[in-house]
Amino acid sequence: MDTALRIRSAAMRLFADQGYAATSIRSLAAALHMTNAGIYHHVTSKEALLADLMRAGQLGLTDATDRMLTGRRDPAERLATLISSLTAVHALYPMTSRVMDGELRSLTHGSSARDEIIALRDLYEQRWKSALADGVEQGAFRIADRKLTRLALMSMCTGTSEWYRPDGESTLEQVCAEFVTIGLAAVRSSAQVTMRLDLTLLPDYPWEPHVDPRVAPAGRPAP
């Protein structure tokens, strides 16, 4: 692993475990057995490092989502894809997900970096808005409040970064399938959508070794 990736990996772990505010360049250097000057040789500032990780994380999520949505026009299939992909990313990359979801507050208000991250998040969320709007317009979904529905479904998916474990009671495929069922019920869709999770289409976050979803829950063989 090269030095730049080692720094990003250690920073992601510290930001996720103890928060951005509690992480200093000194503590990052100590974790890597480097000097502060050695860190600054590769990054301009702690905030720039955070923004870089958040930018790469958000771009990876959006690109992976677009790959999974390719060829899917039906609103129910698109919603199912969005639910499955967001759930899987948060389950497999919990550190990256926690930092992406929770550290926007740490970027300086009015900075170009913060504005960029907000724009990237809005661009991703547009996929959800579009799927829900198309479903309503085509009569496939019945939703009283699209914004609240979107926020509720996305919160359900992102929550897996806090509780999912590969050796838990359910496999990742089972979690995604159940969430799809819950999501379609929330929009009052009568569609029956069966999603097969293709892990090869998920983003690659090299600074975080993801958990192996093929690990079977205790007492059961892997599927």
Score class of each variant (00 low, 15 high):
residue 165 R to S: 02
residue 167 D to Q: 10
residue 140 A to D: 02
residue 114 R to T: 10
residue 120 L to F: 05
residue 137 E to A: 14
residue 103 E to D: 15
residue 148 L to C: 03
residue 144 A to K: 13
residue 121 R to M: 12
residue 146 R to P: 06
residue 92 L to N: 06
residue 136 V to G: 12
residue 129 K to V: 09
residue 174 Q to C: 03
residue 136 V to P: 11
residue 91 A to E: 06
residue 112 S to M: 14
residue 89 V to L: 04
residue 85 S to G: 06
residue 113 A to G: 14
residue 130 S to L: 09
residue 171 T to F: 03
residue 123 L to G: 03
residue 89 V to E: 04
residue 146 R to G: 04
residue 79 L to K: 07
residue 134 D to I: 01
residue 106 S to F: 01
residue 101 D to W: 00
residue 154 M to L: 08
residue 121 R to W: 11
residue 161 S to T: 00
residue 105 R to W: 13
residue 136 V to L: 13
residue 118 I to F: 09
residue 107 L to K: 13
residue 98 R to H: 06
residue 108 T to N: 10
residue 171 T to H: 07
residue 106 S to H: 10
residue 107 L to T: 11
residue 107 L to D: 12
residue 165 R to D: 00
residue 115 D to T: 14
residue 102 G to N: 07
residue 162 E to L: 09
residue 147 K to P: 00
residue 126 Q to N: 05
residue 122 D to R: 09
residue 138 Q to T: 10
residue 159 G to R: 09
residue 153 L to M: 15
residue 83 I to E: 02
residue 96 T to F: 00
residue 170 S to T: 13
residue 140 A to F: 02
residue 171 T to Q: 10
residue 119 A to T: 05
residue 80 A to N: 01
residue 86 L to E: 08
residue 120 L to T: 10
residue 77 E to S: 09
residue 111 S to R: 15
residue 152 A to D: 12
residue 81 T to N: 03
residue 101 D to E: 05
residue 160 T to K: 07
residue 169 E to G: 07
residue 129 K to I: 07
residue 134 D to Q: 03
residue 115 D to M: 13
residue 136 V to Y: 03
residue 90 H to Y: 06
residue 163 W to G: 02
residue 167 D to E: 10
residue 174 Q to G: 11
residue 87 T to G: 00
residue 151 L to Y: 04
residue 109 H to E: 15
residue 114 R to A: 11
residue 107 L to S: 12
residue 157 C to P: 01
residue 113 A to N: 15
residue 87 T to C: 08
residue 100 M to L: 11
residue 131 A to Q: 08
residue 111 S to M: 13
residue 149 T to Y: 02
residue 85 S to M: 09
residue 165 R to F: 01
residue 100 M to V: 07
residue 138 Q to V: 04
residue 96 T to V: 00
residue 137 E to C: 01
residue 79 L to R: 08
residue 145 D to P: 09
residue 110 G to S: 13
residue 158 T to Q: 08
residue 119 A to N: 09
residue 113 A to H: 15
residue 95 M to F: 03
residue 109 H to P: 13
residue 173 E to P: 01
residue 93 Y to H: 04
residue 133 A to V: 13
residue 98 R to W: 07
residue 134 D to W: 00
residue 126 Q to K: 09
residue 87 T to I: 05
residue 109 H to S: 15
residue 117 I to G: 09
residue 78 R to Q: 10
residue 87 T to F: 05
residue 107 L to F: 12
residue 140 A to Q: 13
residue 146 R to S: 11
residue 169 E to K: 06
residue 172 L to I: 05
residue 84 S to H: 02
residue 99 V to D: 10
residue 122 D to N: 11
residue 171 T to M: 08
residue 140 A to S: 07
residue 89 V to G: 07
residue 129 K to F: 00
residue 86 L to C: 08
residue 126 Q to T: 08
residue 146 R to L: 12
residue 125 E to P: 00
residue 99 V to W: 01
residue 142 R to I: 12
residue 132 L to P: 07
residue 166 P to G: 02
residue 94 P to F: 07
residue 169 E to I: 03
residue 110 G to F: 07
residue 96 T to D: 01
residue 121 R to N: 09
residue 136 V to I: 15
residue 109 H to D: 15
residue 118 I to Q: 11
residue 91 A to H: 03
residue 158 T to M: 00
